[in-house]
Amino acid sequence: MPSITQLCRDLRQRQTPAETKLWALLRDRQLNGYKFLRQHPIYVRSALGRCEFYIPDFYCDKKKLVIEADGPVHLYKKDYDKNRDKVLADLGLKILRFTNQEIEDDIEAVLKRISGSLVNDQAF
């Protein structure tokens, strides 16, 4: 089984076109001066004491903001995503979800929502 680090590297190598487009605008502190990480693991201690992890598409540690770019596979993972969002929210993280289509078709609206969340400390 590959390490978490290797899994994250693999995910970064297999980005969707929407993730690539969004990352080009988030990287290097381009959005409001905030640093974003791509495919960065967030560790969680389970109720059974095991260390588990989630790998969000993009993460801003300073603002505790997770951004997800959801492709068609997420149509079949709604329960998993709902549980994952709850676990991350319980850690004090804010989650913004966008469909790949939203990112591809209206990147300005996506960036406006992200920017608003960074400035107002609100996820919407």
Rank of each mutant, 00 (worst) to 15 (best):
N83D: 00
N100C: 11
I67R: 05
E108T: 15
R45W: 00
D85V: 05
A69S: 15
R45Q: 13
L91I: 06
L37S: 10
V73N: 13
R84T: 01
I107S: 06
N83Q: 13
K82Y: 07
C60R: 11
L65N: 04
L88G: 01
A47R: 15
P72G: 01
K82L: 12
R97I: 01
H74S: 02
L96F: 08
V87K: 08
D90L: 13
H74P: 03
P72A: 11
L93G: 02
G92L: 01
L93A: 04
K86S: 09
D85G: 03
N32Q: 15
D85S: 12
K86V: 10
D81W: 01
L65D: 01
E102I: 00
V87R: 09
L37E: 13
E104W: 03
K94N: 12
R50K: 13
A89Y: 02
Y54D: 02
Y59C: 03
I42M: 06
Q39P: 03
D105G: 02
G71N: 09
Y80D: 04
L96G: 09
E104M: 15
A89E: 13
R45H: 09
L37Y: 15
L75M: 04
V87D: 08
L75D: 12
D81Y: 01
D79I: 10
L31N: 02
K62W: 02
R97T: 01
Y80W: 14
R50L: 08
I107V: 14
P72C: 00
S46E: 04
F36S: 12
E104N: 14
D79A: 13
I55S: 10
P56H: 08
F53M: 07
K64G: 01
L37T: 01
I107P: 08
P72Q: 11
F58D: 06
L93D: 05
R97P: 08
L91M: 14
L75S: 03
G92N: 06
I107W: 07
